[in-house]
Every structure is written in C-alpha cells, then in structure tokens.
Design a protein around this nucleic acid. Structure first.
Lengths: 136, 136
DNA sequence: CGAATAATGCTATTGACCATAGCAATCTGT
DNA sequence: ACAGATTGCTATGGTCAATAGCATTATTCG
C-alpha cells in the first residue's frame, strides 16, 4: 500500500525529513525558536563577524528572507546588528543570546542522539555520509 | 563553517530533502504536476477503489487539503471522482490519467536511480532502511 | 582618480503548503 | 433505530520560500 512509495528513496527522504522536522519544530517552539532561527543561532555562536549575507549563503536562505528572520532574533534580544562598514551588518549574539544559544546547543545535541538511536545499528553510521553526499 | 551544522544528522536530513525535493519539483513541474500530486497519482495507479480519505491517511494529508489537490487533478482530466456510496468517493484515473501516470512512473524511476547514484557505494544500500526506520 | 560593476540590506508581493475549526450528509455498530 | 463515527467540504490563517525591484555602498579596472 504505502510500501510502494516507501521503496522510493526520494519519498522516504521526504517523509523522514517531514516527521523529524515536525518533531524538532515542536521541541524548539517550546523554547521560543523556529528551526531556521536555530540554524542561524548555532552558526553565529562564538562568532562576531558573520554578516547577514554570509549567513544566508551558508544556510541557503535568500537575502530577502533573512530580514524578517533577523528582525525576530533581534527583537527577541538574542542578536544585534552591528555595522561593519557603511553597507554590511555583523550579526552578533547578545549576552542573553549566548545563554539562549547554549540552551539550544544541549537541546539539539539531545535531539540528534535520539534521532540516531532510532536507526538500526548496522545502518546508523551510514546515514550522515549518505545524506551529505546528496546535497553538499 | 557549515561543517559544524553538516555534522548534525537532522540538519543534513533537512538539507538533503530540500535539495532533492527542489530538483524533483523542477522536473515534475515541466510535466505539469507537483510533488504531492505525483504521490497521489502513483498511489491510485492500477487502482479504482481508493477514497480521498484513504489516500489522505496513507500520505498523511489532511482531508481538508485533499480537496483542492483532487480538484486540480480532476480539472486536469487525470482523475475522476466516482461515488462509492452516498458518502465516499473513489478516486479513479481516467484514460488520460493512465497515460500521464505511466509517464510519471518512468520519470520517477529515473530520478530515483540518479539519486542513488550520488551516494558512495558503501553507503547506498543503507539509506532507505535508515530513512524508513525514522518515520514508519 | 573615476566610472562601471558588484554586493548588501531592504520592501513588497506572491504562491505553495499545512493546520484548525466547523458543517451537513451519510454510514456503522449495538 | 439511534448514537457516534466518518466523509467530503468550506473558510481561514500562518509559515515558508521565491521573485522583482530599489537605494546605498564597495570594489574593480581602465
């Protein structure tokens, strides 16, 4: 029934990502962030020199869509925009941001190990390299 | 840089799914369907007894969202709604739908093999079972 | 130096997608 | 036969990504 589709790697990839991101979204929402915001926060952890454009490029987020994202992070008080020159803005975590990012770090760490625990041992170590081969 | 995030299975899963679905979406769009529609069409291939609710349950699409989806498929002439009783509707492919679904089948088949080709041989066979362990 | 080109941050808008609430009609189980 | 579940649907809202366009500033190169 579903087996027909579940044999397609592409379909399985879509379904797996959807369920995992749904779960992660719920967890993160309890702590006030969204998934994309979490990625940005982890990226600027311990950095004070990343610009909006740079972040967008490494996460594949368009410049236009970075704006409301950073607005939210800034108005939450976790990040501030600091002019690097007349054009570029460095995105730097505030003190509150550092604390929040530390909390986020342990949250993600726990989530990732629980994710790996679901996978049969003989397949576990192959998932990350296989996935990274697909998109990197 | 990105390496930090690329070591997280969850992040890799999200990125891999996004790029793959982006590519698939482009391919399917050239032939007139969207990804979710394709899943429905593959599901009703060679069947004439699946109801909207049943399809929605196996694909995890809400009843409310099945309506516009099936409207599109119906107005494209690929599928028709046939009353099973006074309440349930069977979703059955038309003749044109059968042809379109056959075309879709070869498209998907090619796409899936090309997807697997990207993965190093030693990891390839582990992807599907690992993914299915996550969501099924 | 100065002019052309590129890059940055932003606004505004759009479309796809998913979720919720509610409703009338019909079916099912006891 | 009646209570409760199911089906298909309307209406609506929120999230997310994509496009086009714009003013300002950096950079590159003759």
């Amino acid at each position: 029934m579903t087996d027909l589709l579940a044999q397609l790697p592409g379909y399985a990839l879509r379904r797996a990502a959807n369920t995992v991101m749904g779960e992660l979204g719920d967890i993160l929402a309890e702590h006030g962030f969204r998934i994309t915001e979490a990625a940005v926060l982890l990226l600027v952890r311990d950095r004070a020199d990343l610009t909006s454009s740079q972040i967008g490029r490494t996460l594949d987020i368009q410049r236009a869509n970075m704006v409301p994202l950073l607005n939210r992070l800034e108005s939450a008080g976790w990040v501030r925009r600091e002019p690097l020159d007349g054009k570029s803005m460095a995105i730097v975590p505030t003190a509150a941001g550092d604390a929040k990012i530390a909390q986020l770090g342990t949250l993600i760490e726990q989530f990732e190990t629980e994710l790996l625990d679901r996978i049969p041992a003989e397949h576990r170590d192959h998932l990350l390299p296989a996935l990274n081969a697909i998109w990197r």
